[in-house]
């Protein structure tokens, strides 16, 4: 059972964990990852972050990534939540939760989902620094992180 949500409002980590935990008595492992808004970008502090996405296409791309994870590992359920709109430092921005029978599947799938979300999903960050707006550049380290999974990236 997979859930993909793109939303402006915050999410509740405890509720998301509880949902995955209680889904089935076969669940033996739940791995969750939460990404937060940092207060700096390129060594300068930021005032706020604005997240744009491509409605419709983002959901399709995230579903493809989740489908890949399901093919690769034995998963019981996956939840992916990504916030859009205006965010502040320390805000929660992204959640990935994976439930499986055994821990290796959940650990690896969670990392895989984040690695590919970073390079595939159609989100764009713009930071506000001292009243100036600037689009965030993509990082080579993110592309490198995804190459470890031995899947063609384009």
């Amino acid at each position: 059972m997979d859930s993909i949500r793109i939303q402006t409002h915050d999410f509740n980590l405890a509720e998301e964990y509880q949902f995955l935990r209680e889904l089935s008595p076969a669940v033996g492992a739940v791995v969750t990852f939460t990404g937060l808004v940092r207060d700096f970008e390129l060594d300068s502090s930021i005032d706020s972050l604005s997240l744009q996405h491509y409605p419709g296409m983002t959901e399709i791309l995230l579903q493809e990534i989740v489908d890949q994870a399901n093919l690769r590992w034995n998963l019981i359920a996956t939840t992916v939540i990504h916030r859009v709109g205006e965010l502040l430092p320390r805000d929660q921005i992204v959640f990935v939760g994976v439930a499986s029978q055994h821990r290796a599947d959940a650990f690896q799938a969670a990392q895989f989902l984040m690695d590919f979300l970073k390079i595939k999903a159609t989100f764009w960050k713009q930071v506000s620094q001292d009243g100036e707006h600037r689009w965030v550049e993509n990082k080579e380290s993110d592309t490198d992180a995804a190459t470890r999974w031995d899947i063609k990236n384009d």
Partner: peptide, 8 residues
């Protein structure tokens, strides 16, 4: 038209 993505 899609520039490099920067979500997550």
């Amino acid at each position: 038209f899609l520039p490099p993505v920067t979500g997550g």
